[in-house]
Amino acid sequence: MVDRLEELKDFLYGLLEARDKMKDMFTQTPLPSELRIPIKGTIVVKRGFAQMQKGGVCMDVTNVEQAQIAEDAGAVSVMVLDKLPYDVRKAGGVARMADIKVIEEVMAHITIPVMAKCRIGHYMEAKVLEYIGVDMIDESEVLTPADDKHHINKWLFKTPFVNGARNLGEALRRIYEGASMIRTKGEAGTGNVSEAVKHMKQIMGEIRALRAMNDEEILETARKYNVPYELVKETARLGRLLVVNFAAGGIATPADAALMMLLGADGVFVGSGIFKSSDPEARAQAIVLATSYWDDPEIIVEACRMVSEKSSMIGIDIKSLKPEELLQVRGE
């Protein structure tokens, strides 16, 4: 009888241990209170990297020449792609991670951080990007998803990740999976800021609503979003996401960038907007200036003077896109 009890106890403890291991997959084990030896890839250095990008503009580039133009114009980082989102849209087919040679060449020529995109759920593309040393990985809906059910478990990486979101539920699910930065999805490659505006207002509005909730409602919201209660509770307490929140998807002019900052973005990503325009150098500088000085009308005007609307990318009306042409619905 006693033996059976011992057996049962071992079994139950085994179950508990397994549960804790499962939990560990999705959280970071806390650091010891004293750190005599350095530890890499901690939550603080991963989220901190994104914090250092605040107030800046990350620019999409496809080669070294564009990366150098971006750096000289004051980009806070560059995102290396095989094709700009506008061209991804036009080319159709499967969009994948950029050429390693191109990414490495860009890393060798500029001093600012270099990011690159991997397909949603494509653990191996992400591992390759981490190995060659990109500073941040964008698990992006602009590329064709590799997994229509799961995103990458980002806690397994030392390199920080940025993920897109259209609403608070998506943002919290990505943070729970280990994202160190969130950006709106917008509708990439359209030069149309309307979807980014919608997503930013949605996220900000949902956070404001959280702040007024009692514990019972927060629990219900956590169930609805499919994330732990503690994550929702902490977001409500802070009144913002636990990570930096950028705007992306359709930003094409300095005024677009300033608008997104006004709506509460911590910074912006510009995709096709710069290198699909006919004045990339001036436009890149103007967007950088407008992002830093979004609350200073005089400087916004100065930034707007630096570009001409005749040079802006033509852009696409969202209503003209068929449902299957929308990129933002990929990976919820």
Partner: peptide, 24 residues
């Protein structure tokens, strides 16, 4: 690069004997 970023305790005698968490 970023994946080499780290945290470690450093000693800064002018601010006291308790180690300071250095985030690099």
């Amino acid at each position: 690069r970023q994946k080499e970023s780290f945290e470690v305790d450093i000693l800064i005698p002018v601010v006291g004997s308790k180690p300071f968490r250095g985030v690099f």
